[in-house]
Amino acid sequence: MIGSTGFIPKSLVTVLALVWLAAVPMAQAIPLGTPLEFDSQEQREQYNKLVRELRCTVCQSETLHESQAALAGDMRRRIYDMTRSGASGDEVVDFLVQRYGDYVRYRPPLQANTLLLWGSPFLALMAGGVIWWRVVRRRRALLSDEALSDADRDALERFRRGE
């Protein structure tokens, strides 16, 4: 944006940006796209799985894996540190749930207050089944109706003739 204003040469902007970056103290948070080292493939997989299953609590429709928020960086750092020091995936999730609540999980646990959430697809399926069954039953009832009576035929014949 700044480079496109034309007032400041692009090279100067680059230099300023580099100076600024160097002046920023080493933040603890892990910015997006930082290459990370792990002791084992399992640790890498656990980290990659966790950051995709946990929610950034500031920007609530993003996972930690995709969020730019500072808090998400802090949370990624905590998950990374815990993973490297040997914590299991469940331990990491518990740690964050104890502090931020179940909301950090994109995969909500099945418990009393989430029963409706988990049950809603089945409820919708059942409601659909009931409606379907009733429609079918009504149509079947129509089929089994008696054929037209003689009086009906007479009436139709009169309509056809335009009387």
Partner: peptide, 9 residues
């Protein structure tokens, strides 16, 4: 660094 911040949620 937000360390205590994380402890306090």
């Amino acid at each position: 660094r937000g360390d205590a911040g994380m402890e306090w949620g």
